Amino acid sequence: MPRRWPLAALGVLVGCAVLLAGCRSAEGPAPAPEPVRPEWRAVDLPAPPGGPGRLVLRDAVACGGRWFAVGAVADASGGTRPAAWSSGDGISWSALPVRGETFYGRQHVLYAAACRDGRVAALGAQVGGVHGNPRTGTWARGCCRCRVWWRWGGSWWRRPVTAAGGGCGVRWTAARRGGR
């Protein structure tokens, strides 16, 4: 055992040296960082085509030098229809054409958006049916062959259909179709 004692003592000395080397005397507290002071401005979103109603904004994203905002228009009776807006500067906005292809798609509230290279995709939902479950759908603009996948019962994952009625970026359209 006498041979282990010098090795243990050396280990303790090295450990103490490492601990002491890590300690430094404080030269004073670090200066507090400057708070962020954003310039907030109120902007008006234009009413999309269709009946009058209250605009319901749910999400906004920016990419490719453009801003996109998504939500819905809620009418006086509580019904909704999907809505989306676009802006090049974040101040002046224009409504984008939105067209739901299904019964629930025409009532969706678009609640989440993501974009890349000026193309945007959104998620929408509306509660309905006998059990009151959310009826969800995927929406896309500026992308006919977006790689957005959705789950359709069980473990099957399918790619959504392409935009109806024309070329890429013509309009927003619900991507979900009935059937398996």
Results as ranks from 00 to 15, higher is better:
residue 177 R to L: 15
residue 145 R to L: 02
residue 179 G to D: 01
residue 165 G to C: 09
residue 109 V to P: 02
residue 148 V to T: 10
residue 64 G to D: 12
residue 144 C to E: 08
residue 47 A to G: 06
residue 112 A to D: 08
residue 75 D to H: 02
residue 3 R to Y: 10
residue 104 Y to H: 08
residue 10 L to K: 05
residue 16 C to Y: 00
residue 53 G to Q: 09
residue 169 G to Q: 05
residue 174 A to K: 00
residue 167 G to Y: 06
residue 126 Q to Y: 10
residue 44 D to C: 03
residue 122 A to I: 06
residue 87 S to E: 06
residue 27 E to F: 01
residue 97 P to D: 15
residue 52 P to D: 12
residue 34 E to K: 14
residue 11 G to C: 13
residue 106 R to C: 05
residue 56 V to G: 00
residue 169 G to A: 15
residue 81 R to V: 05
residue 130 V to I: 08
residue 70 V to F: 04
residue 144 C to Q: 08
residue 66 R to T: 14
residue 138 T to K: 01
residue 139 W to L: 01
residue 15 G to N: 11
residue 100 G to L: 05
residue 81 R to M: 05
residue 70 V to Y: 01
residue 31 P to L: 11
residue 62 A to C: 14
residue 9 A to N: 08
residue 60 A to L: 11
residue 159 R to Q: 10
residue 178 G to Q: 01
residue 118 G to Y: 01
residue 27 E to D: 10
residue 104 Y to G: 01
residue 154 G to D: 14
residue 106 R to E: 06
residue 70 V to W: 00
residue 73 V to K: 01
residue 115 C to R: 03
residue 48 P to N: 11
residue 41 R to C: 04
residue 96 L to M: 14
residue 57 L to M: 00
residue 178 G to A: 12
residue 59 D to W: 03
residue 43 V to Q: 09
residue 146 C to S: 15
residue 142 G to F: 00
residue 71 G to N: 05
residue 103 F to W: 15
residue 41 R to W: 07
residue 23 C to L: 13
residue 21 A to I: 03
residue 60 A to M: 14
residue 40 W to S: 03
residue 180 R to S: 09
residue 179 G to C: 01
residue 115 C to H: 10
residue 179 G to L: 06
residue 57 L to S: 01
